[in-house]
Design a protein around this nucleic acid. Sequence first.
DNA 1: ATCGTTGTTGATATCGTTATCGGAAGTTAC
DNA 2: GTAACTTCCGATAACGATATCAACAACGAT
Lengths: 334, 334
Amino acid sequence: MKPSSRITIRDVAATAGVSVATVSKVLNARYGVSAATSAHVQSVIRELGYEASLVAQSLRNHKTNVIGILVADLEPFSTELLKGAAKAIKGTGYELVVYSAGGRTGDQAGWEQRYLSRLSGTLIDGAVLVTPTVVDVDYGTAVVAVDPHAGPTGLPTVDSDNLNGGRLAAEHLLGHGHRRIAMITGRPDLESSRLREQGFRDAMRDAGVPVDPDLIEVGDYDPDSSAAAARLLLGRPDRPTAIFGANDVSAIAAVEVAASMGLRVPGDLSVVGFDNVPEAALASPALTTVDQPIHAMGHHAIELLIKLIHGEEVDATHLRLPTRLVVRQSTRAL
Amino acid sequence: MKPSSRITIRDVAATAGVSVATVSKVLNARYGVSAATSAHVQSVIRELGYEASLVAQSLRNHKTNVIGILVADLEPFSTELLKGAAKAIKGTGYELVVYSAGGRTGDQAGWEQRYLSRLSGTLIDGAVLVTPTVVDVDYGTAVVAVDPHAGPTGLPTVDSDNLNGGRLAAEHLLGHGHRRIAMITGRPDLESSRLREQGFRDAMRDAGVPVDPDLIEVGDYDPDSSAAAARLLLGRPDRPTAIFGANDVSAIAAVEVAASMGLRVPGDLSVVGFDNVPEAALASPALTTVDQPIHAMGHHAIELLIKLIHGEEVDATHLRLPTRLVVRQSTRAL
DNA sequence: ATCGTTGTTGATATCGTTATCGGAAGTTAC
DNA sequence: GTAACTTCCGATAACGATATCAACAACGAT
């Protein structure tokens, strides 16, 4: 009583007493089949529980209706982006395949390159890249990059106003009287990281506060690396009164390091993050952070990608969404 | 200068001066091709940057090397499970497609049924179901359920020891002197929810403490629903001194409701959760909770599924992983 | 010289679907 | 009654890969 092999269009044609061509026409609502036979074929389809093979359709139509999303790792930011993308994709007729490089497992750069060449035109119709090492090459497919690699790139892009975000964070701390403000920066190869730092520096300059080079440490957007940076910063004799973390992960790591050193946040140290992932609101103390509309970014990335796949004209291939400051409990006036 | 259409096996055969059959043999390392031609063909493949079409291979081989994971929603638990699955799938030769029903959007039950019938045998070789409404039907594919629907089911399953977990939570609170202990239960249709409640009741009975029916409210594993339940419980004149949330989401919701009512956790109210998602450690106060090894569950689900796909003998189709109590700051002796 | 063996290669059918095109009816107009 | 349409339907060639099987050459054995 095994279900035997899958029901094909031929089975349907046979039991309906028509040709496969007719069944195909019925399936795709093509012109050239009478109402009567159409109804009959449809009833047979229902009766047999026939479903067209997506694989065969893909081969024939040169499109798979699958969109890939490549993330370097499932950390909070990409997870949120994934949620936004997953929601956006509903009802579009596309499916979402998730490829995760699986963290810093020495997989090295270029994995998305390899993935893409293997998949494009064969398993996916397009891809959203949420991964650092995006090089500006001609992928065979439609591609949208989120928070892309530094450097001018011709790739369609979705990001947020990182420059202004960095400025907002610094201004918030400056406005609260802080002067010795440290920063744990992100991955130097990421455009977002550079812009956040630049915004931070701009605000400091505008306020006439010099940036102490000793108070800038690289955190790589990564908890361990950021914790090390925080330990360095807070171990200094003239330790900073505030830290700006390039993302929430590094800010939270800084808070934890501070706590382990007996420093109270925000009593002894103010901390500002970036991203406003859900964890920021849950952290204790709740993290003051720069919000980027992550879900919306995922949404726009999918929308943009689908337009590109369809070959539609897109007015702006570089979408930049606004950032804003969310004040919570991790900052206090000096 | 467009890349023109994709390079096919025919192009390779043509430029290499051999037949497609030979190229195919080289690709699959089949017997029957001389070392010389093999080397030559391989160099042509490299030169042209040829990649075999996964779609065509799928059609021909009746397998796609894609595994689907169906989640009802990307809440913390499924997100963690997804991470575990994503990590486990690396190096297996399979890809992971994520299907999210997108929350309680009236999509109604049966969506995974529809998905599966549309995808199985055509786009995916098997599926992991992380979704409530798993009915015990014969899906056309290999299927593994995580935290399945209540009721005996023949489906291969991965879950954790929910019964003992519920007991651990209750015993912890009882051991701290609590007697008026409330519970916010999960979705009544889920086996996990029922078992957690049962374990809770068992421990209460063994301790000789009667369960006040007024102190059991349904939370559906959902933040809003759980918050409503918490408001009900904490609004009572004889309010409980402790709450056991059927998952971390409801426990955190309860903490928030308590805070909004001016109650201090753990001072005025002890709260225990279930799952030990990352949010539990970040919450303030850090949540005492019952840990289930979510990543491991994802890992085992993928492993089991791949074995099923390969038709291997599996010793146990029902994997039950242990739970353990993680004591943090949200509970205190009465 | 004939036969069998081994090693290498290529034609070809097939997977399940869709687009194209031709043919068989039926209908209308003269 | 025939020409010109309309409808409706089916045969068939793709899509890109793989497995089967036949063909063929080279070789040694008889």
